[in-house]
């Protein structure tokens, strides 16, 4: 039997507790609104997004390219022959055309592959009302260019991010809220020693995770590992440094685990959406691209795919590697300055 008086009192108390926690109000109401504004602006095109189609650049140029361009539902990108395969396998384009007459290559796992095929066939029909010309279509199913091949390196990046957020960020605030940090700083323990130890323990923990994912992908789904495992390890290390630094930074002030959870959402949500772990982030609007490129997860994922699937040499990924290390170091330095021990 529910007693209304009691239910009312408890509900009232719960409301009050919520309304008196400003950060909870922000994360509950303000943050989703903010996300709605950001995403709404990002995808406000009233027209459906055109389908990205790649055309291999040939010496003479092909007569049928103009026909493709005439179709407003297709966005035609001319690509160099050496880059064409990569565009398709990274999901930058839904279809790739090469040769004359053109041969179409599709990734059948992409949801817009069939749509791309339909529009290409219609555009290349001899006359507007005639039946579509029969095109030679091949489906791309070789290991190295499927969705699973795209996904595994992305998941490695995502796990590095998670380890930094939960392992460092959440744990540190938990220790602060339990007064454990206070207890530790009145001992001769060095504060630097503590943070270094925490970072090291987390770094050690992310390696097995990445190795496990790679082996699982390789032996179960046949995901190729073309690049050198050592280069991959170096990249994993750099990613872990970047995300651990970020974790430390968000953990440097909050007194409660609720407070740090908000910060974690603020970081995790854009990274999940824009970091390119689950789907290609190259098709987001151009004005969003600078932000997307600045996300450490984007840098980590792209470089990981280049190494794992494309066999990139260490110097080829020196840029992202340095970016990740620099990002981590910057976070770390800022965090140490503003870190609250009690």
């Amino acid at each position: 039997m529910l007693r209304p008086g009691i239910v009312y009192r408890i509900a009232l108390t719960s409301f009050r507790e919520f309304l008196r926690t400003p950060e909870a109000i922000f994360w509950t109401y303000g943050f989703p609104l903010l996300m709605a504004v950001v995403l709404g602006l990002a995808f406000r095109e009233s027209q459906p997004q055109p389908i990205q189609v790649g055309v291999e650049r040939t010496a003479g140029g092909a007569a049928w390219v103009a026909a493709l361009r005439a179709n407003p539902r297709l966005a035609v990108r001319e690509v160099a022959p050496e880059e064409a395969e990569r565009m398709l396998s990274r999901g930058r384009v839904a279809a790739l055309l090469r040769g004359d007459p053109p041969v179409v290559r599709l990734d059948p796992t992409r949801p817009d592959a069939e749509l791309a095929r339909m529009h290409i066939e219609r555009s290349l029909a001899p006359a507007p009302d005639s039946a579509p010309r029969g095109l030679e279509v091949t489906e791309q199913t070789a290991p190295g260019s499927r969705y699973i091949d795209f996904l595994i390196p992305g998941l490695i990046g995502l796990n590095l991010l998670g380890a930094g957020m939960w392992g460092i960020g959440y744990n540190l605030v938990d220790m602060r809220s339990k007064r454990l940090l206070r207890r530790l700083v009145v001992t001769p323990m060095g504060r630097g020693e503590f943070l270094v130890a925490l970072l090291c323990s987390r770094l050690v923990l992310v390696f097995p995770d990445a190795v496990l994912l790679t082996l699982f992908g390789h032996f179960v789904f046949g995901v190729p590992v073309v690049g050198s495992p050592l280069t991959m390890l170096a990249l994993i290390l750099a990613g872990a440094v970047a995300f651990s630094g970020l974790g430390l930074l968000i953990a440097s002030r909050p007194q409660t685990t609720e407070g740090v959870s908000g910060w974690m959402n603020l970081i995790l949500l854009p990274m999940w959406l824009l970091g390119g772990s689950f789907f290609d982030n190259g098709s987001f609007p151009a004005w969003l691209q600078p932000l997307i490129r600045a996300l450490p997860l984007t840098q980590c994922n792209d470089a990981m795919r280049d190494v794992m699937l494309g066999g990139a040499a260490p110097w080829a990924i020196a840029g992202p590697l340095l970016y990740l290390l620099g990002f981590g170091a910057a976070c770390l330095m800022l965090a140490v300055r503003i870190f609250r021990w009690s």
Binding site: R179, L180, R182, R183, V186, T187, P188
Partner: peptide, 18 residues
């Protein structure tokens, strides 16, 4: 301060440990 931390022992109010 470093020397003092070696020479004092502290039990805070309501500490929870690992």
């Amino acid at each position: 301060a470093l020397e003092l931390r070696r020479r004092i022992g502290v039990s805070l109010q309501e500490t929870r440990f690992f």
